[in-house]
């Protein structure tokens, strides 16, 4: 098949999926910019009379969107950092050393993957109460890091396996100790893998809902998913145009960063897989 022919066939095959994926984005956008009075028109239609950009401003002011954005950023960045700081040594050990209980440790990690936060939410809540962390964003940082660790350790370990041992051994010959060889030689090589796993953790934390709903009490501590949900749930009235404006603002920046970084994600998966 020529490249041109392939292009046509592939795009035709992908078209249904692409349409379904883009549909919610279209819904978000045309709802977010339409005047309030045109939310409920019958028969429903995509078109609307004017772009009402003020919706975004109104929404921002009315719903403390900025605060939620900062909270979400803080939680996602901090939990990503924590997950990486804890996962890197563990993955390094799994990749480089033999030690008793290695298999057990791996299985334990797999089991932690199996527990949904929902299933554990009550127990987690009691735990956070004991630490006085309820209504504190740090409770989310700790839990997100913990729930993501299994995956990050697994990813990092398979990647670390691809970094030749000889490099570090050469450094030891030169008199460097393990710590120095790890930080000077090994870690710089592992940066791509860290980006990938970090991105993965970041997305998961950014999107998490149930735990945030349970642990966070004050509105000024809400993360974005909870903030948006609270505008839909149990209200006497849902301001759909504001909800959609919020969703657009919460989604677009992540989608952009994500489209830029996704190539690394795939590369990371591929590299991690090469044994």
């Amino acid at each position: 098949m020529s490249k041109v022919k392939k292009t046509i066939v592939y795009w035709l095959l992908l078209l249904p999926l692409v349409v379904v994926i883009l549909f919610p984005f279209g819904v978000m956008f045309v709802t977010a910019v339409r005047p309030r009075a045109e939310l409920f028109v019958y028969p429903p239609r995509w078109t609307f009379s004017e772009f009402r950009w003020d919706n975004f401003v109104d929404m921002w002011v009315k719903t403390n969107f900025g605060g939620a954005l900062i909270n979400s950023l803080y939680v996602s960045v901090a939990s990503t950092a924590l997950a990486l700081v804890l996962s890197i040594p563990a993955a390094y050990a799994l990749s480089r050393y033999r030690f008793g209980g290695k298999g057990l440790y791996r299985n334990f990690l797999l089991v932690t993957q199996m527990m949904s936060p929902i299933v554990l939410v009550l127990g987690l809540f009691r735990l956070m109460v004991q630490f006085g962390l309820v209504n504190n964003l740090n409770s989310l940082v700790l839990t997100y890091a913990a729930f993501n660790m299994a995956f990050t350790i697994w990813m990092l370990q398979s990647y670390f396996n691809t970094i030749p041992r000889e490099l570090e051994e050469a450094a030891w010959m030169d008199g460097a100790n393990h710590f120095v060889s790890m930080t000077r030689i090994f870690l710089p090589l592992a940066v791509p893998a860290m980006v990938v796993t970090g991105l993965f953790t970041f997305i998961n934390s950014w999107n998490e809902f149930v735990l945030a709903l349970t642990m966070i009490r004050n509105q000024d501590q809400y993360t974005l998913p909870v903030q948006i949900f609270s505008q839909v749930a149990g209200r006497y009235q849902v301001e759909w145009h504001h909800v959609m404006a919020g969703t657009v603002l919460a989604t677009v920046p992540v989608a952009i960063v994500f489209s830029w970084l996704q190539r690394f994600l795939i590369k990371g998966m591929a590299l991690g897989a090469v044994k």
Binding site: L122, F125, V134, R217, N218, S230, A233, G234
Partner: peptide, 21 residues
């Protein structure tokens, strides 16, 4: 003051009481 949406109020109070907060 903690403002809680109606839909989650009972859940909130349940976890609060269960957790002693």
């Amino acid at each position: 003051i903690q403002v809680v949406p109606w839909d989650t109020l009972l859940q909130r109070l349940t976890t609060d009481i269960a957790g002693g907060t």
